[in-house]
């Protein structure tokens, strides 16, 4: 009955360092439906990545519950494909070996894993790079490979933490369109983090706006642009209105 991929309820997190306590998350509620593309935006340093690490199972929340596929479990690691800002490709492994990293962890037989990786690389136009070392790849290419590594590990639920933040504008745009392609292909549920409002509008079904630290959800908005999304849609009146609305909301938070 539950079509929710992710339901996070009342998530809090406070970091302690000596006697100092840093309240980072103040009760976050967040859901991602199956197949939905949800983006979290917020001013920098607001705790987006902390929320993210909690969902990925790398950190434990101070309070609250997280259900993935309706199951509440404290050992969440491995239930989502996690992609941080840096591509973090291993320089001693070739592109295809990097893509199967998650399957190696799961002890999937190598032949089977490599076959899966090649199929994926072929489908998304990277097959020619399969035997290359990552040092030869451009920034955009590295991120694509990292994304495929994430997809191969768990195509159902992708956690993407500002994956295109370090790319130049043009590369970023082409990576964004490429991500939408991947998303549609696998009907993946995506939780995406960014501080780029236009990126959020271009990619998402729904957008959560977080406040400055300690973070809480300021607003949840739906981005009702038709699919397939195109960069030109950002120029449409609804998109522009949404952009200025979100922008002023964030700007107010940033000044605090």
């Amino acid at each position: 009955m539950d079509t929710l991929k992710l339901r996070a309820r009342g998530i809090t997190k406070t970091f302690h360092s000596g006697r100092q306590a840093l309240e980072t998350l103040a009760s976050i509620d967040l859901t991602v439906e199956a197949g939905e593309f949800v983006t979290v935006i917020g001013p920098s340093g607001c705790g987006k990545s902390t929320l993210f690490n909690i969902v990925a199972g790398i950190e434990t929340p101070g309070a609250g519950t997280i259900a993935i596929d309706g199951v509440v479990e404290s050992e969440r690691a491995g239930k989502a494909g996690y992609m941080p800002q840096k591509p973090l490709l291993l320089p001693w492994k070739t592109v295809e070996e990097n893509v199967i990293l998650g399957l190696d962890v799961r002890h999937v037989p190598r032949k089977q894993a490599l076959a899966g990786a090649r199929e994926l690389l072929k489908r998304f136009g990277l097959l020619e790079f399969a035997p290359h070392y990552p040092a030869t790849l451009s920034g955009g290419m590295s991120q694509r490979v990292a994304l495929l590594r994430t997809v191969l590990f768990n195509p159902g639920f992708l956690l993407l933490d500002e994956p295109f933040g370090a790319l130049d504008a043009l590369t970023r745009l082409s990576c964004q369109m490429w991500l939408l392609d991947v998303w549609q292909e696998f009907r993946a549920s995506v939780l995406f983090i960014t501080h780029d409002v236009r990126e959020a509008i271009l990619l998402s079904n729904r957008i959560y706006v977080l406040s400055a630290r300690p973070a809480r959800v300021l607003r949840v908005v739906e981005a009702r642009l038709p699919y397939p999304r195109q960069p030109q849609q950002l120029a449409s009146p609804e998109a522009s209105q949404l952009e200025s609305e979100l922008m002023s909301l964030l700007l107010k938070e940033q000044q605090l």
Binding site: G57, I58, A77, G102, V105
Partner: peptide, 24 residues
């Protein structure tokens, strides 16, 4: 961050040592 990536894949301590840290 790389260690975190491996942890998100539910790698054990020994897997992290063997697959990432020793080669690095």
């Amino acid at each position: 961050e790389l260690i975190n990536l491996l942890r998100s894949m539910r790698a054990t301590r020994w897997q992290i040592l063997w697959m990432v840290r020793l080669p690095a």
